[in-house]
Design a protein around this nucleic acid. Structure first.
Lengths: 154, 154
DNA sequence: TCCCATTAGATGACACATCATCTATTTATG
DNA sequence: CATAAATAGATGATGTGTCATCTAATGGGA
């Protein structure tokens, strides 16, 4: 077997595995709140940046590029988000959290904190900083760099 | 803003970003071969382990847990895989690469090598080993640990 | 031998992601 | 002012992932 790219190949699958496993774990923590990991991400972006247009939201999300029309659509149906047409330029919509959305966001913060506690039980702060610094390098020059920067993760 | 879990939160989104970005890059490399990253993973598992049952394949894949019926179904339709009912126990199917599948796999190896070159241009072998060692820790005790071990990534 | 628990795989349901295309508006330009 | 270019968002198509449930086949125990 060719072992030339052994570490690079392992890195590829380890990243995939960690993302899947982490998503699964977060999904479990969020289950009784009734939101998915992607929805939780939308809500935390809205909490910080609302009111915001769909396109801006798309630029800030890590979980999805392009315009998250359908992700938002489902959340509107579940009364987590309100979608308001802009008066001045009706191409835009302005997105804000509903009261229910705000309520649930409080629970989401707690669930995420539980998740982060588990991560910090596994890694020292120094380890995390080293890993993060390395992961940032691969994102430089990609469309996600701006999103991560705006969100405060760079 | 609460900064208690700053690094853990950044880690969460960096892992997501790197996985998305990497998947996108690999997808581009594989595009003219006509296979997706998940399909490429199935083919490299088959190349090494064929003939194999659907359930075993599911245990070996990182890209999907459970049984990858539909992933395989699409690949059968595209004549990449052959699905043969086991004579002795017709609950099982045995999966093998078709000649077309083998041909395409040769191209996939090249595309993946290009991808790995880019990763190694970014990171030293030592950095990769450090990162991989760290990522392995979070996988310990999860269902994916076995898959990674069997595939030779642990 | 007969019945039932077990097992492999298929399938329905749902929520993403991504890409291409379409629609409704707005704005720029002749 | 009229029309074309540009822009925001919606929508269709396709391929995942995940979970629950269903079906078909096997095998073990009464």
């Amino acid at each position: 077997m060719n072992t030339e790219f052994k570490e690079a190949e392992a890195f590829r699958y380890l990243i995939l595995a960690v993302q899947r496993q982490g998503n699964k774990m977060l999904k479990a923590y969020l289950k009784n709140i009734g939101v998915t990991p992607s929805q939780a991400e939308v809500m935390s972006v809205l909490k910080k940046y609302q009111p915001i247009a769909l396109k801006e939201l798309g630029h800030l999300l890590i979980c999805e590029e392009g315009s998250p029309s359908r992700l938002v659509e489902r959340m509107v149906k579940e009364n987590l988000i309100e979608r308001i047409r802009d008066q001045r330029d009706s191409r835009y919509v302005r997105l804000v959290l509903t009261p229910l959305g705000n309520e649930k966001y409080e629970l989401i913060i707690k669930a995420e904190a539980d998740m982060y506690h588990r991560v910090e039980a596994l890694y020292s702060k120094e380890e995390l900083m080293t890993a993060n610094q390395m992961l940032r390098k691969i994102i430089l020059g990609t469309p996600l760099e701006q999103a991560l920067e705006d969100r405060g993760f760079v």
